[in-house]
């Protein structure tokens, strides 16, 4: 099967610090990819390259056979991105913000309006659609961001900690949406620290550490090779297994 995302020898450095050290990835369409790793592992950098936020990198990135360097706009049209931090112009209303995003994707006004209203309705924000978002909680803003990432009906959805700030009901809703989108054939690139969620929603898990991929496979494959739970696999492969002894050392601080 042809890969929808193909990454070859992807490298990126910030001055003397090499953040990505030759990442190679072939991602099949319609799969949910759990992309995990400790802080500073290179997850966000990979995502930023894929979404066009970082343009100077080494290696090759193809999405649906399109070279990212040659036609970034065509790739941007295929991707919907939801960033980790709810950074949006919150003096706008959800409808104004979604209308702005929809227009940037050159959607028709009526389609933007209808789709935005429906999305806000599903997220329980219809009543707030004409209210300025500076009065919203983090979870409400995150729901607007999710809507903005999906409004143009992208083929590939990149979610960077999409559950951040959401309440339990919204988490269930988003997990459900992820599996429904995947069943519709969308490819989902899911970055998170929440191992239990990644374990449940992902068809394939990629673990990155120090700018390199250290594990890649289905959860059961990873289990066979490395351990019982994803949390333990993560701890083992990112060399944080000694966290128990670190915690004990920390507790000794109170002996003084």
């Amino acid at each position: 099967m042809n890969s929808i995302i193909s990454i070859k020898n992807l490298e990126k450095d910030y001055g003397s610090k090499q953040v990505l050290k030759g990442i190679n990835l072939e991602i099949e369409p319609g799969k949910v990819i759990g992309y995990i790793g400790p802080n500073g592992a290179g997850k966000s950098t990979t995502v930023k390259i894929l979404t066009g936020l970082i343009s100077d990198f080494k290696g090759q990135v193809h999405v649906k056979g399109i070279d990212l360097r040659e036609d970034p706009l065509a790739i941007k049209r295929l991707i919907g991105y939801v960033p980790e931090n709810a950074e949006l112009y919150d003096v706008l209303t959800p409808m104004e913000y979604l209308s702005f995003i929809g227009q940037l994707y050159e959607m028709e006004d009526q389609l933007i309006h209808d789709r935005a209203e429906n999305m806000l309705k599903y997220f329980g924000l219809l009543e707030n659609k004409d209210q300025r978002m500076d009065t919203f909680s983090k979870g409400m803003k995150q729901k607007v961001l999710l809507s903005s990432g999906l409004i143009h009906n992208p083929e590939i959805i990149i979610l960077d900690e999409p559950l951040s700030g959401l309440d339990a009901n919204a988490v269930i809703l988003v997990k459900e949406i992820i599996s429904l989108l995947s069943r519709q054939g969308k490819t989902i690139f899911y970055c998170s620290h929440m191992m239990d969620v990644v374990e449940k929603v992902s068809d394939r898990i990629i673990l990155i550490n120090g700018g390199s991929i250290v594990a890649d496979g289905t959860f059961s494959e990873l289990q066979q090779n490395h351990g019982e739970s994803l949390e333990k696999i993560f701890a083992k492969l990112t060399e944080t297994e000694q966290s128990g002894s670190h915690a004990a050392d920390f507790m000794h601080l109170f002996d003084q």
Partner: peptide, 17 residues
Amino acid sequence: RSEKYKSAWVYFVAPVA
């Protein structure tokens, strides 16, 4: 200029020629 300058990421991920 704005205190909300980080929200400008949308320009870079949208397909703006």
